[in-house]
Amino acid sequence: MPVLVYTENWDGKFKKLSFELVSYASEIAKMMGTSVTALSIGNVEQNELKKPGSYGASKIIEVKDDRLNHLINSAYSSIISQVAESEGANVIVFSNNFTGKALSPRVSVKLKAGLVSGVTALPSNLDPFTVQKKVFTGKAFANVVIKSDIKILTLSQNSFEIIETENNATIEAFTPEFTDNDFRTEVKDVTKVTGKVLLTDAEIVVSGGRGMKGPENWKPIEELAELLVAATACSRPVSDEGWRPHEEHTGQTGKIIAPNLYIACGISGAIQHLAGVSSSKFIVAINKDNDAPIFEAADYGIIGDVNKVLPEIIEAVKELKAES
């Protein structure tokens, strides 16, 4: 009765969060005295496919079908349920991203398995099966007991360390059964953001608020992001004004992110903004107002004008890079 992990890919490669997920599943499997099976759906290159093994999976199941090149909730959740049944899995883990949120509820109903989303740590107890999750959009944690035989978890991003291990996993193909009902939605067009670090996958995020004063002042934010291999983000008014694209808006009504470093430039730190970024490991705030609430959430702060401070930060990063 292994722990089953849905390992998601992007452009033929596993996402970083898939490895975080396998590491997490491996620790649960250790607690339960069982193994980890990873499930890949769609087109993943052969030498990429074995990678979940390096994070603790002992078996990798591959499902390939031309109809599965885009996410189709019904078909994907049907595959995951079928694999879970054929493997006899009693714990299934997903990432708590768009895909995990789309699939886990359907699998939950198919298998009558209790679902807890946004889990932040390993189970604190196996019997009763108890996990901790974020509630009130990051303002508190809850301990939740799952009462069904099969348990489904979605893991909050960046809440578990990626651990590499030596493990040679076997790869198996699986042929699921479909019905016409599994394909009632159709992807007609795709717009991909390429060549940029994905906001939800980024280790470092450089973000700007209304204090930046206008879209013409974003150059330093973009330059710093490029130097740090970071993603760019913004507060809600900034995307509402159209200064920045909507995908960049973080907070309660935008994206919820948890990078290692979040650099907030000219952002006041309203509670709804913090709800999306407060799980970052470190927060740096640059604001000219020493009373701005962002300083209560930040680890490092500079009271000053972004227009003056940002170029100096860029210089200092360049110097650091030149030294190392």
Partner: peptide, 11 residues
């Protein structure tokens, strides 16, 4: 109901 919230904590 398949899950039960048993307790809460503040960060």
């Amino acid at each position: 109901a398949l899950t039960e919230f048993v307790s809460y904590e503040l960060p």
